[in-house]
Write a protein that binds this DNA or RNA. Structure first.
Length: 285
DNA sequence: CTCCAGGTTCCGG
DNA sequence: CCGGAACATGGA
């Protein structure tokens, strides 16, 4: 039993760091609760708590949790494919146990549409506001949680209601994207069948989705572990650590370099470099 | 107050 | 293809 009076069950979780994973900027709605975290996976309210090499999870959620947190990813095999250079080695030492999770495609996509030019803290606020205002309310023990609203649900919202969630100019994009998905103009299930390049192209048909967001979705929702999103942090890392004394380095060059240099699990390397940079960089530098 | 944040889009070289 | 600018909002 947990402190809030719902039953727990235990599942094995080797090479997994729950807190690290939830703090790595992949997903934005989990909250600390008791000795663990509570959140919603799809429409299932879940409590998760790390206990060494296993997890205590709210009863019945074991299978969903295993899949969501990608406990089947072969981390040691993935680490072996990493380039043996200083930046990646340092990031790996900092991030061991961080897993690339498998989020439901729509909520991942929608959340990253709202992420542009926003700090993680603010993305969290927007995610919570959208869930609270439009999402299905679910209950776990005494606590109430909210699922992410479907595309169809958001499609019938008004732009002012979305702006009330502090989305700013992103409201228009999220609304338009929700309408296209709800209308079947873009089919997220079909993305599964496309190769990475085609999938990015298809996702980029949605307003507010460019290459960076599309790659985040491939990586964090579709399990395309080679996808390598290049945001401001990773761009800095690449420029400063891999192109140290180069005059002009274009976006195209950064993309080509990262795709061939980091290999078939480049997404993992990217996430480790990102998280390490974000957590260790002081503002003056 | 200023700076900047897990960008995208549009526009002129 | 490349560099700039506009676009909202709130932490730091």
């Amino acid at each position: 039993m947990s402190g809030w009076g719902f039953p727990l069950s235990r599942i094995a979780a080797h090479d997994f760091d729950l807190a690290l994973t939830l703090d790595s900027g992949q997903v934005f709605h989990w909250v600390k609760a008791d000795a663990g975290f509570s959140g919603v996976i799809g429409d299932v309210p879940v409590y998760v708590e790390q206990r060494g090499e296993s997890l205590a999870v709210s009863k019945g959620a074991g299978r969903v949790v295993r899949r969501y947190f990608a406990l089947d990813h072969p981390l040691s095999e993935i680490y072996e494919t990493f380039p043996k250079d200083e930046p990646v080695t340092t990031a790996l030492g900092f991030c061991r146990g961080l897993r690339i999770i498998r989020q439901p495609a729509w909520e991942c996509l929608a959340t990253f549409i709202t992420s542009s030019m926003k700090q993680v803290a603010h993305i969290q606020q927007m995610s919570h506001a959208i869930r609270r205002n439009f999402g299905e309310r679910v209950v776990l023990g005494g606590a109430e949680l909210f699922a992410y609203p479907s595309a169809a649900r958001l499609a019938e919202a008004g732009e002012p209601e979305l702006r009330a969630c502090k989305l700013g100019y992103r409201a228009k994009n999220l609304l338009a994207a929700a309408r296209m998905i709800a209308a079947g103009e873009v089919d997220l299930a079909r993305i599964e069948k496309l190769d990475d390049e085609r999938a990015v192209e298809e996702l980029c048909r949605l307003p507010g989705v460019g290459e960076k967001v599309a790659n985040c979705v491939l990586l964090f929702a579709y399990g395309r572990l080679a996808a390598f999103p290049i945001d401001v942090w990773i761009e800095r890392v690449l420029r400063e650590l891999y192109f140290k004394r180069k005059r002009k380095v274009t976006a195209k060059q950064l993309k080509l370099f990262s795709q061939k240099y980091f290999g078939r699990f480049g997404g993992y390397a990217q996430q480790y470099l990102f998280h390490h940079a974000r957590k260790t960089r002081r503002k003056g530098e």
